[in-house]
Design a protein around this nucleic acid. Structure first.
Lengths: 256, 256
DNA sequence: GGTCTATATTGACCCAGATCAAACGGCCTG
DNA sequence: CAGGCCGTTTGATCTGGGTCAATATAGACC
């Protein structure tokens, strides 16, 4: 309903860095995200094979779409740097954030089933992604078994992640949802070499609320409660986790 | 929390119909579900190729598990006949039904990512499934492009379906959720040649509630309200949809 | 550096759905 | 066919989070 006003721009051709010798040099084999991203588990020689899989890069500025619901599906995207959200918009204006994605994670798999994207992908900070043309990914998957395997794992994990969100939305109370959300972010930041205790939220309270099935006021109140209980400290988007154990305990004890 | 008491039995070896000439004869190329199931979109010759993909059949009696969270992942399963639910169980006893599956649909993709199943799959009526050993599926996917493509589509559609459930759980009111649920069931029964208006629910109110993030009493009350409004008629598990348009209208009008 | 606008916090009140409780209806089993 | 057991329906009451509203804070933009 509250259509966030942000620059509207996802012209496909714009900001696409063409493949050149220099860009190739910075493809998977040279990328420090390869242990988190699509090449995970591949041998050196296999990674070399998938280097030319990346059909270019694209910068997506904060607030801009990487793709929109309805766009034809042509490629999936690996986040080189930055932060995204995906959301679905109903005709009546209601929307639901379906996920937040960070460096090394894959975007766009929603489009495979129907050849059309079914959600919107929007950068929450200035970002850069690697374009992986899907036809080529399938082609190479037929040749490189480890790539095939890992791509299937990536899709499966997305399904499992979605089940976790369903659990959260279906059975958890507001504070549990937020605790789970913070712990999940912390864990993913840690995997990327950042502090587990301290990070900046890239999204608004409203976006967190949409993801967690709560109103922004409820999110804000839960943050304040956590702060009162010395579980975290919050200042706007800056979060410091003071008692991760306390947050975890919140998760396992359902209220009366 | 309410652990439903049902026979406990998913011994893998039991009830597995071994591959014989006769069982092969009834594999994909002879199966009347092939337009709904994994072979969809494949040519006659391609379907012939995947006939020996099915590593046997297995009957699963009502209330029994096809697999459990924690079981090693080895195969995915195509439902030949019957009806299943999948659910996740939290340590504290809370559980969430993550889906209901019917003939032609694929089960088990949750296990690909970690080589271990992450949810439970339970038959809601006496059922029979085709076992598709995953190693062989990947093998054949590397050879038959159309199979690869379609398998990716099946996984992607599962992701999109999950997004729809997230939308439902995150933004819809109780009656909208139930209306969406009924319309979805109706549409899937129709695709299988059954009546769009009239069907038997295979699941309890509690299971519907778990899936929709509601309590069973709320589900029951919503059914009664729909009946009062002449949208449906309900008698226990027997449903007749009287006004599909009315149900659809419920979906698009969010309450004040 | 001051104004503007988006985001965040906090308070007061309300309501959809949860909870508690009771009764009903199929159906299976002995 | 009587008795017990689920699963379901319905009523009465309670409450977590939604809604409405006012204020605070901070970037962003001249």
């Amino acid at each position: 309903m509250t259509q966030i006003k942000r620059p509207d721009d996802n012209v496909q051709s714009q900001n696409v860095v063409p493949i050149t010798l220099t860009s190739l040099k910075a493809a998977c084999s040279q990328c420090n995200l390869r242990e988190l991203c699509l090449p995970y588990g591949l041998s050196e020689t296999e990674i070399a094979q998938i280097d030319h899989l990346v059909g270019g890069r694209r910068k997506v500025k904060r607030g801009h779409h990487l793709y929109r619901a309805g766009d034809p599906f042509e490629a999936i995207y690996a986040i080189k740097m930055g932060f995204f959200k995906t959301d679905i918009l109903l005709e009546d204006g209601r929307d639901q954030v379906t996920g937040f994605q960070m460096a090394g994670e894959i975007l766009g798999m929603d489009g495979i089933g129907t050849d059309v994207h079914t959600c919107n992908s929007i950068a929450l900070e200035d970002s850069e992604i690697c374009i992986i043309p899907f036809v080529q990914l399938e082609q190479l998957s037929r040749e490189v078994q480890a790539l095939q395997r890992h791509f299937h794992q990536v899709m499966s994990r997305e399904i499992v992640r979605d089940h976790g969100v369903m659990m959260l939305l279906g059975t958890m109370r507001a504070e549990e949802r937020l605790a789970a959300f913070l712990l999940n972010l912390s864990q993913r930041f840690t995997a990327r070499g950042y502090s587990p205790q301290e990070f900046h939220l890239r999204m608004t309270r409203e976006e967190i609320g949409s993801y967690l099935g709560l109103k922004l006021e409820t999110v804000s109140r839960a943050f304040s409660r956590f702060q009162d209980d010395d579980l975290i400290s919050v200042h706007q988007k800056h979060i410091r986790i003071l008692d991760a154990g306390g947050l975890k305990r919140l998760l396992n004890h359902q209220a009366p």
